[in-house]
Lab assay of single mutants.
Amino acid sequence: MTTFKLIINGKTLKGEITIEAVDAAEAEKIFKQYANDNGIDGEWTYDDATKTDTVTE
Score class of each variant (00 low, 15 high):
residue 1 M to W: 11
residue 1 M to C: 15
residue 1 M to K: 14
residue 1 M to S: 07
residue 1 M to L: 14
residue 2 T to R: 13
residue 2 T to Q: 12
residue 2 T to C: 15
residue 2 T to I: 14
residue 3 T to V: 12
residue 3 T to H: 05
residue 3 T to Q: 10
residue 3 T to P: 02
residue 3 T to D: 01
residue 3 T to N: 02
residue 3 T to I: 13
residue 4 F to P: 01
residue 4 F to Y: 11
residue 4 F to H: 02
residue 5 K to R: 11
residue 5 K to P: 02
residue 5 K to F: 13
residue 5 K to E: 02
residue 6 L to Q: 00
residue 6 L to F: 15
residue 6 L to N: 00
residue 6 L to W: 12
residue 7 I to T: 01
residue 7 I to P: 00
residue 7 I to M: 04
residue 7 I to Q: 02
residue 8 I to R: 00
residue 8 I to M: 03
residue 8 I to G: 00
residue 8 I to Y: 07
residue 8 I to T: 01
residue 8 I to A: 00
residue 8 I to K: 00
residue 9 N to K: 09
residue 9 N to T: 05
residue 9 N to V: 12
residue 9 N to C: 15
residue 9 N to D: 07
residue 9 N to P: 02
residue 10 G to R: 03
residue 10 G to I: 13
residue 10 G to S: 09
residue 10 G to N: 03
residue 11 K to C: 15
residue 11 K to H: 11
residue 11 K to I: 14
residue 11 K to F: 13
residue 12 T to P: 01
residue 12 T to A: 08
residue 12 T to K: 10
residue 12 T to D: 08
residue 12 T to F: 14
residue 13 L to F: 15
residue 13 L to V: 10
residue 13 L to G: 07
residue 13 L to M: 11
residue 14 K to G: 03
residue 14 K to M: 09
residue 14 K to N: 04
residue 14 K to L: 08
residue 14 K to Q: 10
residue 14 K to V: 10
residue 14 K to D: 04
residue 14 K to P: 05
residue 14 K to E: 04
residue 15 G to V: 15
residue 15 G to C: 15
residue 15 G to M: 15
residue 15 G to F: 15
residue 15 G to L: 15
residue 15 G to K: 13
residue 16 E to T: 13
residue 16 E to S: 10
residue 16 E to V: 13
residue 16 E to W: 14
residue 16 E to H: 09
residue 18 T to L: 10
residue 18 T to V: 11
residue 18 T to D: 02
residue 18 T to A: 03
residue 18 T to K: 04
residue 18 T to E: 05
residue 18 T to N: 03
residue 18 T to M: 09
residue 19 I to K: 00
residue 19 I to F: 05
residue 19 I to P: 00
residue 19 I to W: 06
residue 19 I to A: 01
residue 19 I to S: 00
residue 19 I to Q: 00
residue 20 E to W: 15
residue 20 E to L: 14
residue 20 E to C: 15
residue 20 E to D: 06
residue 21 A to I: 07
residue 21 A to P: 01
residue 22 V to M: 12
residue 22 V to A: 10
residue 22 V to T: 10
residue 22 V to K: 12
residue 22 V to I: 12
residue 23 D to H: 04
residue 23 D to A: 03
residue 23 D to L: 04
residue 23 D to R: 02
residue 23 D to K: 02
residue 23 D to S: 12
residue 23 D to N: 12
residue 24 A to I: 13
residue 24 A to Y: 15
residue 24 A to N: 06
residue 25 A to F: 10
residue 25 A to H: 09
residue 25 A to L: 11
residue 25 A to S: 09
residue 25 A to P: 02
residue 25 A to D: 08
residue 25 A to V: 11
residue 26 E to W: 08
residue 27 A to F: 03
residue 27 A to P: 00
residue 27 A to G: 01
residue 27 A to Q: 01
residue 28 E to R: 15
residue 28 E to F: 15
residue 28 E to G: 07
residue 28 E to D: 09
residue 29 K to M: 10
residue 29 K to V: 06
residue 29 K to W: 12
residue 29 K to R: 14
residue 29 K to N: 03
residue 29 K to Y: 06
residue 30 I to H: 03
residue 30 I to C: 13
residue 30 I to L: 08
residue 31 F to P: 00
residue 31 F to K: 00
residue 31 F to G: 00
residue 31 F to L: 03
residue 31 F to C: 05
residue 32 K to C: 13
residue 33 Q to N: 04
residue 33 Q to A: 10
residue 34 Y to L: 07
residue 34 Y to V: 02
residue 34 Y to E: 01
residue 34 Y to F: 11
residue 34 Y to H: 02
residue 34 Y to R: 01
residue 34 Y to P: 01
residue 35 A to P: 00
residue 35 A to E: 01
residue 35 A to R: 05
residue 36 N to K: 15
residue 36 N to C: 14
residue 36 N to P: 01
residue 36 N to T: 13
residue 36 N to M: 15
residue 37 D to L: 09
residue 37 D to I: 10
residue 37 D to H: 05
residue 37 D to N: 07
residue 37 D to S: 09
residue 37 D to T: 06
residue 38 N to Y: 12
residue 38 N to M: 15
residue 38 N to P: 02
residue 39 G to S: 06
residue 39 G to W: 07
residue 39 G to R: 05
residue 39 G to Y: 06
residue 39 G to H: 08
residue 39 G to I: 03
residue 39 G to M: 05
residue 39 G to Q: 04
residue 40 I to L: 06
residue 40 I to S: 03
residue 40 I to A: 02
residue 40 I to Q: 02
residue 40 I to T: 01
residue 40 I to C: 12
residue 40 I to D: 01
residue 41 D to K: 12
residue 41 D to M: 13
residue 41 D to E: 13
residue 41 D to G: 06
residue 41 D to N: 13
residue 42 G to R: 03
residue 42 G to M: 08
residue 42 G to E: 05
residue 42 G to I: 09
residue 42 G to T: 05
residue 42 G to L: 09
residue 42 G to A: 04
residue 42 G to K: 03
residue 43 E to S: 09
residue 43 E to W: 13
residue 43 E to F: 12
residue 44 W to I: 03
residue 44 W to T: 04
residue 44 W to C: 08
residue 44 W to Y: 03
residue 44 W to D: 02
residue 44 W to Q: 01
residue 45 T to I: 08
residue 45 T to R: 08
residue 45 T to G: 05
residue 45 T to M: 07
residue 45 T to K: 06
residue 45 T to H: 12
residue 46 Y to I: 09
residue 46 Y to N: 03
residue 46 Y to F: 11
residue 47 D to V: 09
residue 47 D to N: 09
residue 47 D to I: 12
residue 47 D to A: 07
residue 47 D to S: 07
residue 48 D to S: 11
residue 48 D to G: 06
residue 48 D to I: 13
residue 48 D to W: 12
residue 48 D to K: 09
residue 48 D to P: 14
residue 48 D to Q: 10
residue 48 D to E: 13
residue 49 A to C: 14
residue 49 A to M: 11
residue 49 A to N: 09
residue 49 A to V: 11
residue 50 T to I: 06
residue 50 T to D: 04
residue 50 T to N: 07
residue 51 K to A: 07
residue 51 K to R: 11
residue 52 T to Y: 05
residue 52 T to F: 07
residue 52 T to V: 08
residue 52 T to Q: 06
residue 52 T to L: 04
residue 52 T to M: 04
residue 53 D to E: 15
residue 53 D to T: 15
residue 53 D to I: 15
residue 54 T to I: 11
residue 54 T to L: 07
residue 54 T to R: 06
residue 54 T to V: 08
residue 55 V to N: 06
residue 55 V to M: 06
residue 55 V to F: 06
residue 55 V to W: 06
residue 56 T to H: 07
residue 56 T to I: 06
residue 56 T to F: 07
residue 56 T to D: 05
residue 56 T to E: 07
residue 56 T to L: 05
residue 56 T to W: 08
residue 57 E to R: 02
residue 57 E to C: 12
residue 57 E to P: 06
residue 57 E to L: 12
